[in-house]
Simulated assay, not measured.
Amino acid sequence: MPIRPGMTIPLPGPLHAQRDRIVELADLGFTDVWTAESDGGDGLTPLALTSVWEPRLRLGTAILPAYTRAPACMAQSAASLADAAPGRFVLGIGSSSNVIVERWNGIPFEEPYRKVRDLVRFLRDAFTGEKVTQRYDTFEIQGFRLGIRPEQPPSIVVAALREAMLKMAGREADGAITNWLAPGDVPQVAAALRAGAGGDDRELVARIFVCPSANADVVRAGARRAIAAYMNVPVYAAFQEWLGRGEQLAAMWSAWGAGDRKQALGEIPDSVVDDLVVHGSPDACRSRIQEYFDNGVTTSALAILPFDPDLDHWDAVQSLAPAAGR
Results as ranks from 00 to 15, higher is better:
residue 172 E to T: 03
residue 244 G to T: 09
residue 259 G to H: 08
residue 252 M to H: 05
residue 131 K to P: 07
residue 223 A to W: 11
residue 294 D to V: 07
residue 181 L to V: 15
residue 42 D to V: 01
residue 310 D to M: 12
residue 296 G to R: 05
residue 66 A to I: 03
residue 297 V to F: 03
residue 105 N to D: 00
residue 113 Y to F: 15
residue 239 F to S: 13
residue 46 P to I: 09
residue 305 L to I: 05
residue 199 G to W: 04
residue 139 F to A: 11
residue 155 S to V: 02
residue 31 T to P: 01
residue 313 H to Q: 13
residue 174 D to V: 05
residue 189 V to E: 02
residue 42 D to A: 00
residue 38 S to R: 04
residue 305 L to W: 01
residue 223 A to T: 12
residue 10 P to K: 13
residue 98 N to V: 12
residue 311 L to R: 14
residue 191 A to W: 00
residue 62 A to G: 13
residue 176 A to W: 02
residue 37 E to Q: 11
residue 10 P to I: 11
residue 94 G to S: 03
residue 208 I to Q: 06
residue 270 D to G: 08
residue 142 Q to E: 14
residue 108 P to L: 07
residue 146 L to F: 07
residue 19 R to N: 03
residue 121 R to K: 12
residue 173 A to E: 00
residue 25 L to Q: 04
residue 77 S to Y: 04
residue 29 G to T: 12
residue 44 L to M: 12
residue 246 G to Y: 09
residue 314 W to M: 15
residue 114 R to Y: 05
residue 162 R to F: 03
residue 29 G to I: 11
residue 135 R to I: 04
residue 172 E to Q: 07
residue 58 R to F: 06
residue 233 V to A: 15
residue 74 M to Y: 03
residue 160 A to D: 05
residue 302 L to C: 03
residue 43 G to V: 01
residue 112 P to T: 14
residue 312 D to N: 15
residue 190 A to V: 03
residue 74 M to A: 15
residue 200 D to C: 05
residue 101 V to E: 02
residue 195 A to L: 04
residue 153 P to H: 08
residue 41 G to Y: 01
residue 73 C to I: 13
residue 205 V to L: 15
residue 39 D to E: 00
residue 173 A to F: 01
residue 130 E to A: 13
residue 146 L to H: 09
residue 324 A to W: 11
residue 66 A to T: 13
residue 119 L to V: 13
residue 99 V to P: 00
residue 304 I to S: 06
residue 103 R to T: 09
residue 56 R to S: 11
residue 177 I to D: 03
residue 268 I to A: 01
residue 83 D to N: 13
residue 144 F to Q: 11
residue 207 R to L: 12
residue 103 R to D: 12
residue 74 M to I: 10
residue 254 S to L: 10
residue 145 R to W: 00
residue 232 N to H: 14
residue 227 I to V: 15
residue 55 P to A: 06
residue 199 G to H: 06
residue 313 H to D: 14
residue 135 R to K: 14
residue 52 V to P: 01
residue 67 Y to D: 07
